Simulated scan of single mutants.
Amino acid sequence: MLTPNMNYSHLKSSYLFYNIAQKTKAYLAEHPDTHLYRMGIGDVSLPLCDAVIKGLHAAADDQSKADSFNGYMPECGAPFLRTAVADYYRTRGVEVADDEVFISSGASDELGDILDLFDRSNRSLIIEPAYPAYVDANVMGGREIVHLPSSRSNGFLPLPDGDTDAELIYLCSPNNPTGAVFSREQLKKWVDFANAHGSVILFDAAYEAFIEDADLPHSIFEIEGARTCAIEICSLSKTAGFTGTRLGYTVIPKELKRNGMTFNDMWVRNRTTKTNGVSYIIQRAACEVFTPEGQRQIHENIAVYKQNACTLMQALDKLGIWYTGGRNAPYIWMECPNGMGSWDFFDKLLNEAQIIGTPGEGFGKCGEGYFRFSTFGSPEDTKTAAERLVALLK
């Protein structure tokens, strides 16, 4: 008799966004003409920039002519895009070879798929609060999870200590959900720990484009020693608005080896076996992101989201509420006022100010008592929501 993957039975119900949707639906049923200020979901609101749109149209036209038509693409990514991504690193002083870059359909997909490289006996260390997919992907794979708690006392940026023990280490910086960003010194401690223990860091850099402080690292590979202990996974979803277009990239250095196995070679074998590559049209459009004009345009959009963050931070500063994130990340992680629980605060905001955010408890036990705001909404809605927040809590 066939036996299913019973690890799925250990998954917790995905109640977070389901509960948010149900509460929102119920509220709108009673107040059908009410406008809600949605700052919960991490989806972008601005359209793709002109450079990307022109790239999409040009690539679609290529597919209409025999002499420029493209069928299956190279599984690890088109050479033109692998070079463009590697050049993006190299212009920032990070040496990455073209064939160390792998093009994917998005960071979320890759964060799950990458676990194919590691034996199921390897334990995964996950800092909480955490992006839920980290936990769920490891549960599905039957892998033991080591939960490392974080809190306001360490700025939600914990460091390894004598009790830290895991073969795989998930680091997300800027962090989702907290918006906290590791310094170079903090990342060096993690890199040194990983090298000393033979661990591998899975570094989620999906929000690196939002970093504005010059002393904060955008890539784990800015840290000495990272090429022998880290894999970096990135995305154009928030950087360039590709949430509906889907493209990401992963960097695996050739120096990353364990037990005589080279992870770069292993990933080539994995991709050429399990994928047929990302479409030509999407890769051509993504290539425009890395041109000077594309960079100028996407940073214009990012500036809108960063101004939204400033608007919300000013409101929280006026209220004297503690928070992290915002300045170098598209998320703001605030402490719920007056000791309120995360869901209690959600209900208060929805019912009394028509604002929707995300209860911190949904990101793990360490998130209870905290709340996440996304800054990807429209400037108009963000401004009004900030005013309503101040009026409600002052």
Rank of each mutant, 00 (worst) to 15 (best):
P149L: 07
Y37K: 00
A285G: 04
M1S: 13
Q63F: 06
F242A: 10
E75I: 08
A137I: 11
Y331T: 12
K12S: 10
N276R: 10
F182W: 08
F346G: 01
T243I: 08
E335P: 05
L216P: 01
Y27N: 05
P32Y: 13
A240D: 07
I201Y: 00
Q283I: 13
A205I: 13
T245D: 11
P47F: 06
L11A: 04
D62M: 05
N259G: 11
E222I: 04
P292R: 07
R38T: 12
F376W: 13
L28R: 09
G142D: 02
G325E: 03
R123V: 03
A180Y: 03
P337W: 06
L171S: 06
I145D: 04
G179F: 03
D317M: 05
C366Y: 02
A26V: 08
T245W: 15
V304M: 02
G326V: 01
H197W: 00
Y8P: 00
A303T: 02
F371N: 01
V390N: 05
D87S: 14
F80V: 11
Y18L: 13
W267R: 13
D347R: 09
A386G: 01
I298S: 03
N259H: 12
R123P: 01
G339C: 12
F346T: 01
G112E: 14
A391C: 08
S374E: 04
G244R: 15
G225E: 03
N7I: 00
I231Y: 05
F102Q: 10
G364R: 02
E224Y: 04
N270M: 11
D192G: 02
A196K: 11
T273G: 01
S199V: 01
G142P: 03
H147C: 09
R269I: 02
I41V: 09
G248E: 15
A133R: 15
P132Q: 13
I298Q: 14
F80W: 10
R284P: 00
N351L: 08
P79Y: 13
